[in-house]
Design a protein around this nucleic acid. Structure first.
Lengths: 229, 229
DNA sequence: CGATTAATGATAGTAATACTATTATATTTG
DNA sequence: CAAATATAATAGTATTACTATCATTAATCG
C-alpha cells in the first residue's frame, strides 16, 4: 500500500514536509520531541540535533515552531475527519453516524500504518497537551484568515450538520460540537494530572467512560422533547 | 468599605502582593499588560517599566511569569467562588443554586469595587485567553501538588456536589462541571475569533445565549429520566 | 553527460528573554 | 536612633528564536 499523504493548507508550511525525506524526519521527530519535552521546552535546535540536520534547514520548512505545532495538530484533525468519513460512509442513520464520530473521537489512538512517518499515539498526547496553544495566541485572527484551523473547523462543521439533521431546532449545534471536541481531550488530560476535575479514571477504562460521557452530553442536549431545546 | 483581599495559597507567590503597594501595582498592571500584549509577549521587564520599578523587584514577589499568571487566574476563581456563595446563600433549591452559579459564570464581568486594584474586565479577558496555559505545562503535577489550582478545583467541586444532590445517580458530575467551566470561556473566545466554532454571536447578546447553552447542556445531561444517565 | 537549479549543511551573528547576583539606597519597625 | 527589611540600580549569563551568508551536495533536464 502506498503511503498516503493529506493535502493540508499550504500556508501551514514553507516547503511541504510530506514530500521530502528531511521533511518527513522533521514531522516524525518533532512529534516525538514535543511529546517528550512539551512545546515550551521544544526548540528547532534540539530537533536539528535529533535528526542530524541544522536549525536553518528546519526553518526552510516551517516559519517558526508555533506553525509547526499548528501543522501537526492540523494533521491530527485531518486524520480524525478521514477516519470519521471511512467509518460513517456505510451508515445511513444520522444518529448512528454521530455516535460513530464520538466513538472515533473518544477511542484510544493507535499507530495507523497508513501514515508511515506519523506516530499517532504521540500525536494524540500532543493534541491533549498542546491543542489550545495553537489558537490561544494574539495572532489567531491572522492564522485563521490563512485557513490554518480548517481541519478542526471542518470536523466541527460536519458533526454540527449531523446534529442539524437530527434536530433542526436545536440552537447550539456548533457550540456543543466544539465543546465536545475539546473536552474529549481535556478530560483525558485531567484524568492523568488533575483527577478531581474529571469523572474518568486514569486506567484503560477511561476511553469507554469518556465515550459514555460525550454521548450522554450530546444526545441529551439535542433531544427534541426537552424543555431546554 | 475596607478593601477585601483573598487568602490565596501562599505557594503562589514569594511575597504576598496584596499587602504592599508595589505588590498591588504588580497585580494591577500585570493584568492590564497581559491583557494587552498576551501572555507570550508579556515580560517582567515591560511590567517593570510600566510601574517604574525593576525586574529584580518583581522577582521578589513572583518566582516567574508563569506563576504570576497562575496567581491572577487563581484570584479569578476565588472571586467566582465568592460571588457564587453570595448569590446562592439565600437560595434553598439546589437546582436554583446551580442556575445561579451558571448565571455568574456566564455573565459579563464588570468592575467590582470590592477589590480596588483588580480590573475584572481585563482579568476575564485573561482568563478567556490564557486559562489553559496555567495547567498545560510539563510542570502541572508539581504545581498541583502545591495546591495552586485549588481555586478552580474548589469551584468545580462545589458545583459538582450540587449536581450530586440534584441527581445522585448522574455519573459524570465532575467532568460535566469542568467542561462547563472551561467551555464558558472558550465559547466567548470563539465568538470573537473563530465564529464558525460557536453558536454565539459576537455582540452583547452572547452572555445570555451562553447562559442558555450552559443551562441546556447541564440540566439535560443530569435529568434523572433520560436513558443516558 | 554536463550544466543548471534547488536543497541542505556549516557557520556566524543578533536582539530579546528569563533569569541571577551584587551593591547601594530608601523605608519601615522596634 | 539602630537594625532590619524592601526596593532600586546595575550588570551579567545562558538560552532562544530567529536571520544571513556561503559552500556543498543532490536532483533535474536539455
Amino acid at each position: 500500500m502506498p503511503t498516503l499523504a493529506f493535502k493540508l493548507n499550504d500556508h501551514l508550511y514553507l516547503r511541504d514536509p510530506q514530500h521530502t525525506q528531511l521533511g518527513q524526519k522533521i514531522i516524525h521527530s518533532s512529534m516525538l520531541l514535543i511529546d517528550q519535552l512539551g512545546f515550551e521546552q521544544f526548540t528547532f535546535k534540539k530537533l536539528a540535533e535529533e535528526i542530524d540536520s541544522t536549525e536553518a534547514s528546519i526553518y526552510r520548512y516551517f516559519e517558526n515552531k508555533h506553525r509547526l505545532l499548528v501543522y501537526l495538530i492540523a494533521w491530527y484533525w485531518n486524520w480524525m475527519e478521514y477516519r470519521m468519513e471511512i467509518f460513517t460512509s456505510a451508515v445511513a442513520d444520522p444518529k448512528e453516524k454521530l455516535k460513530t464520530c464520538l466513538r472515533i473521537l473518544a477511542e484510544e489512538k493507535k499507530y495507523d500504518p497508513t501514515f508511515e512517518f506519523v506516530n499517532e499515539e504521540a500525536l494524540h498526547r500532543i493534541v491533549i497537551a498542546e491543542l489550545d496553544k495553537t489558537y490561544l495566541t494574539k495572532g489567531v485572527d491572522d492564522l485563521n484568515k490563512e485557513g490554518l484551523f480548517g481541519g478542526f473547523k471542518s470536523v466541527c462543521g460536519k458533526i454540527a450538520s449531523l446534529i442539524h439533521v437530527i434536530n433542526p431546532n436545536y440552537p447550539f449545534a456548533e457550540s456543543l460540537v466544539s465543546t465536545v471536541l475539546i473536552t474529549a481531550n481535556q478530560q483525558l488530560f485531567f484524568a492523568s494530572h488533575l483527577p478531581s476535575l474529571t469523572s474518568l479514571e486514569a486506567n484503560e477504562s477511561r476511553y469507554n467512560r469518556l465515550y459514555s460521557f460525550l454521548e450522554n452530553v450530546v444526545f441529551c442536549s439535542i433531544k427534541a422533547d426537552n424543555k431546554y431545546a
